[in-house]
Design a binder for these strands. Sequence first.
RNA 1: GUCCCGGUAGCUCAGCUGGAUAGAGCAGCGGACUUCUAAUCCGCAGGUCGCAGGUUCGAAUCCUGCCCGGGAUGCCA
Length: 613
Amino acid sequence: MDTYDPIELLSNRFRQAIARAYPEVGQEVDPLVSASRQPQLGDFQSNAAMSLAKRVGANPREVARAIIAHADMSGIAEPLNEQSVAGPGFINVRLAPDALVRLLEALDEPALGLRPDEPMTVVVDLCGVNLAKQMHVGHLRATIIGDTIARLHERLGHKVIRQSHVGDWGLPIAMVTAKLLELEDRGELSESLDLDELNRLYKQAQAECAGEHRAMEVIQRVGGHAKLEAELAAINAEADEHLAHARRVLVALQSGDQRVRAMWQRIYDVTMSECLRTCARLHTLITDEHSAGESTYAEELGQVVEDLASRGIAHESDGALVVRIEGIDEPCLVRKSDGGYLYATTDLAAIRRRVQQLGADLVVYCVDARQSLHFKQVFAVARLAGYATKPGASQPSRLEHAAFGTILGEDNRPFKTRSGENVKLSDLLDEAVARARRAVDERSAELSREERDSIAEAVGIAAIKYADLSNDRIKDYVFSFDRMLAFEGDTGPYLLYALVRIRSLFRKAEAEGIAFDPHAPIIITEPEEKALALALLRYPKTVRAAAETLQPHRLCGYLYELCSAYSTFYDRCHVLKADDAEQRCSRLRLCHLTARVLADGLDVLGLPTVERM
RNA sequence: GUCCCGGUAGCUCAGCUGGAUAGAGCAGCGGACUUCUAAUCCGCAGGUCGCAGGUUCGAAUCCUGCCCGGGAUGCCA
């Protein structure tokens, strides 16, 4: 048997049977094999007869009988008979016990049935922090969903390049750079500048440049407040001066002025060192080498725009340069009327580099769903201009916006602090870890302080990540510490706990001198054993589906079901106290395989695991 | 206005390529710890799949219209 996947094997047999029964339809028919939802009816089912009935002009149950008559299930499933046909024409299949064992043994190899695909290069755009700003809840999803999508593709053997499109360029950055230079001139710039302070100065710089133009409009409309008007005018004049100064700093930065550049670098370093620390704490594989900020495209923007204009793809409109796309009403602006470039321009340059230089066959943008129009436009322009096509390729690479919804508070409004500020991501992680710590203290007071610390860290992070990843990406979800750290239910801690129990079992076996034989014969007799076995066999296909659809929540759902099947098995089928040595060895092997699949799946999701909790 | 996304149990969510009696978790009720980690397991109860049409042997799933909620929508990113 050359594959571990019962659905594939059964599909082949059904395909052959259909071809024999109905030579006129050939091998093209999808046998529609899926896992049965009701174990009492069978393990798997084929729904082919119903769809085939119309094509061959017979009634579905007759078609089902014809398929059965031509089906050879030897070596895989129990023979099919009249009783196998149910309802309108479902064909129920029960795996042969020895086949189930062989499939499990085939799965029980180092790669767990996940042999590498035809290797591709995948670029995943994730994280997306901004200079001089703390990571906040908004970055949580872009970071962890992006990292998990990257891990999914790595697991399938692809070359994955993570890229954080850092917001490190443009006027806002120049404003804070100007602010810092000013402080330095006055000798008021702290040597130990950290991100909190930097973030404070950023907001201050923003406010200073913004002035009170809105208030002024209101006052002027109302009239009769000459004194106030004069005050606002003074503030605005000052703000305009700040803004003009910031623009001069931007020009200096862009032309490579050494002092300005050095200050920018300092802002960059302070921001990134702290953000990357948070990325590491989130158990993501995002490091310095994955930063590809907007600044790195600065030199290419002019070329891109020039190229689009000279080839007649972009046109002038009200002073701006736009690309119009068939099927999209809103044009894509690539150059402002003042000559400045926009984020679409940078993203076009990024696609060009990612596809043509990095060789991406797939580029995934893990970015907020609110930007879907933007990506729709940019992808279309990139395809039109050929930027999405690898040199020599006939087809453009796949460009995907892995959009995600908003994190909501318990009031169903976007998650903010009481004062309406964004919640600092590190505060959020601290809170989750502190709550996890309380739970660990309650239950496992016997463990050392250090051990409880590291367990709490892993449990807290796993809880936050699982709560996020287990929801369908595109939807908004409600953030709740109570729910994600709950003692019961579909949570990160539940998955970690299942693995802990298996690991504990093996420690106990070792302590009792019970040998584990990784090649012991597997004997499936109890329904709980069979349910666990069938769950294990679904692993490879689940990982592939999650990667293909860019939906980590499918893998989460699977792992929860696997753990659930294991917990039931664990409850009903004693392992170390099994009836005899054969059964004990078989069950130990089942436990071992479960632990490996679970640990592998958790690793693909990017959840930390623990030995005890 | 136009476009995008969502609407499934009291709450939070799954539901695969259209397939059998729509599934979990939480909360509620009732059970299981002298027994491998009970952060567990088992059972009960809980549904107009937003509404109305249509396609189909079969629709939560596909199509059309409408309702509700969120978002986007030419010079921020």
